[in-house]
């Protein structure tokens, strides 16, 4: 189990993480939050990239700072990935394999297995610089999977990817999630909807809510309404979206008080927005 206990992180005087505490068991977690919420900082603390000002991160009860082998158990895909572009796909992964101290004998098999998962096996001898943006992203995923780490952290893994690549990512996720702690940081709610067991919602450096998808959805229970466009809406309500229904434009509203006469089934996005907006 990975536990973050009362974590504080500040850059000079700017506090970015304030008293963050979460605990993660094997499963897939979505780390949701708006831009600047502190997701990347939290992730970088988790992978020991950042020095923490206060608090502790423990893995299986041991402080990760004192556990030098911890990093070998972590796979990390940063927001941008495009290193060693002049190497072949195989050599590129080999580079990370060496850094992760994968034994020489099992290196080739590990690399091929990862490439199989991310569907890049046919590109094994291609230079990275010749791959498309989506392929480089998958190579980054392969790099994170290398060495079969117990913890895998993806920072904005689907940013800038087309729908097909996003779907492919979800498939990869379902292939690898067995007995692993996987954290996916994103601000795209629909990405986590299908594949996450739990969600962590962050805002301004604090954890607003941690729970299962059901628990997040429950936060919007009885707060989602549909009204026709033009209906008077209280300014405290939040318009989630607008769409056409039976030739009429209608609005999906989040509100603490009933609006109109049609209540809707909530989604994760509704729950997320209710938490974020304090509805």
């Amino acid at each position: 189990m990975l536990e973050v206990i009362n974590l504080d992180k500040a850059f000079k005087k700017k506090e970015v993480l304030k008293n963050v505490s979460i605990s993660l068991k094997p499963g897939v977690y979505g780390l949701l939050g708006s831009n600047g919420a502190g997701k990347t900082t939290l992730i970088r603390c988790l992978v020991k990239l950042y020095h923490i000002n206060k608090g502790q991160i423990q893995y299986n009860g041991v402080d990760v700072i004192k556990n030098s082998a911890f990093t070998e158990n972590v796979g990390y895909l940063p927001q941008k990935f495009g290193l060693f572009k002049e190497l072949t796909v195989y050599d590129n992964l080999q580079y990370f394999g060496v850094l992760k101290k994968i034994p020489k004998g099992s290196m080739e098999a590990s690399i091929k297995a990862c490439l199989e998962i991310v569907n890049l096996k046919d590109k094994i001898n291609d230079r990275v610089s010749t791959l498309s943006g989506g392929m480089i992203r998958r190579l980054g995923i392969a790099q994170a999977l290398l060495g079969e780490p117990e913890i895998i952290i993806f920072d904005e893994p689907t940013a800038g990817l087309d729908p097909e690549e996003r779907l492919r990512f979800k498939n990869i996720l379902s292939t690898i999630k067995e007995n692993k702690i996987i954290v996916i940081s994103t601000h795209i709610v629909e990405d986590v909807e299908a594949c996450c067991d739990g969600l962590i919602i962050m805002n301004e450096g604090t954890i607003l809510k941690e729970g299962s998808c059901g628990e997040i959805i429950a936060m919007a229970e009885g707060k989602v309404f549909e009204v026709k466009e033009g209906t008077y809406i209280n300014p405290s309500c939040y318009i989630q979206k607008s769409y056409l229904k039976n030739g009429e434009r209608v609005l999906r509203i989040l509100s603490g008080k009933p609006v109109g006469d049609k209540q809707l089934e909530p989604t994760i996005e509704d729950g997320y927005m209710c938490i974020m907006k304090g509805i």
Partner: peptide
């Protein structure tokens, strides 16, 4: 150049158990 300004260079500072 990769370690300082490469895209995703942070990965090189956190997966290497020999440290930063």
């Amino acid at each position: 150049k990769e370690y300082i300004s490469g895209d995703g260079n942070e990965v090189l500072y956190c997966i290497d158990s020999s440290g930063k």
